[in-house]
Design a protein around this nucleic acid. Structure first.
Length: 341
DNA sequence: TAATCGTGGCG
DNA sequence: TCGCCAAGATT
């Protein structure tokens, strides 16, 4: 399949998407900081969702040195809504480690040792920022390769085989452009459903297209059903204050700002304070591995009471955009109850 | 190894 | 409406 890379790069030269973190085709190496930041944000996250976060982060922190010096709570607040919050915690740890080392390492093995950088991201940074012929394998590449070679083995078991096959395609020149071209192809032509094979620059070399089974690949093993869990969130308000807590650093929504809550993450505890709690309509939220119905309890107090959990924050300092998505839903449920009250 | 970890968009 | 799944890493 020696002809794949030239055909794909020729397509990329004409069809590359313009993205805030990207250097135009043939433009050479990109800023390692911007490559790294974008790749972390893009883990299991769509380009559309990442774009605004990337622009905001690079405006606030233009360099890895600036990010390394940032306040933890501000970084968590800026990440709020993007999901997978371990990424934000690892982002700061990685930035500080990189600055302490005097910059990003250039080889994949050294990159792999940094927090939050695994097999995919290390290869992407090495190829895109440092022009090294590493093979970048994300979900797009897995799909493109599974179709090119008509791999019938279902994912995730097929991953090692797909990685090996992908490596046979990686060129010695322009490896960064090649990696981004594979991902662009997967995002725009070789899509999971209804792939546009007629427009594909690789259709002449594609075994799945030839066999008429491109839309069926890659096959996937069936996923376990999602359990339904039920919990409670407590929203306590005074005219001036709001009760919030910082969640423990590990586990679900780790390190994020949140309303005290219970029952849904293997914990259970009473209300954070004694009050007349009124029950609102529950909030529904679907996580990766379970669905949640969160009961919303609201207490309107004349003055702050001693709380067993969390701390009282002045309401002018509170912004729901600093909360993860689930907690934004909780706040959206509360808001109509207190407007005009 | 298999489970854990968010959210939004799309067919 | 709802299941799928996206530029994965960690333990």
């Amino acid at each position: 399949m020696r002809e794949v890379a030239p055909a794909l790069l020729a397509w990329y030269d004409r069809h590359a998407r313009s993205l805030p973190w990207r250097v135009p085709p043939g433009g050479g190496r990109a800023d390692p900081y911007r490559v790294w930041l974008s790749e972390i944000m893009l883990q299991q996250t769509t380009v559309a969702a990442v774009r605004a976060y990337f622009l905001r982060f690079t405006a606030l922190w233009p360099t890895v040195e600036a990010l390394a010096a940032a306040d933890d709570a501000q970084v968590m607040a800026e990440w709020a809504g993007l999901g997978y919050y371990a990424r934000a915690r690892n982002l700061l740890a990685c930035a500080r480690q990189v600055v302490a080392q005097g910059g990003f390492p250039q080889d994949r093995t050294a990159l792999m040792t940094l927090p939050g950088i695994g097999p995919y991201t290390s290869a992407a940074i090495a190829a895109i920022a440092f022009d090294q012929p590493e093979t970048v394998v994300d979900g797009n590449v897995e799909r493109v390769v599974a179709r090119l070679f008509a791999v019938e083995t279902p994912l995730p078991a097929a991953k090692p085989e797909l990685t090996r096959l992908a490596a046979t395609l990686t060129p010695q020149t322009r490896p960064g452009d090649f990696a981004q071209a594979m991902m662009d192809l997967g995002a725009t032509i070789c899509t999971p459903r209804n792939p546009a094979c007629a427009l594909c620059p690789l259709n002449a070399m594609c075994a799945a297209f030839r066999a008429g089974i491109a839309p069926e690949l890659p096959r996937r093993s069936p996923k376990p059903a999602k359990p339904q869990r039920i919990g409670t969130a407590w929203v306590a308000l005074t005219p001036d204050l709001i009760l919030l807590e910082r969640r423990p650093p590990k586990g679900l929504l780790g390190g994020t700002l949140a309303f005290p809550s219970t029952g849904w993450d293997n914990s259970d505890s009473p209300a954070p304070l004694m009050a007349e709690w009124q029950m609102l309509e529950p909030v529904e939220h679907v996580f990766t591995h379970f669905a949640l119905r969160l009961q919303v309890h609201l207490a309107l107090l004349p003055a702050p009471a001693n709380a067993a959990r969390g701390s009282w924050l002045p309401r002018p300092e509170f912004a729901s955009r600093d909360l993860p998505g689930l907690m934004r839903k909780v706040w959206a449920r509360v808001l109509p109850e207190i407007e005009g009250g």
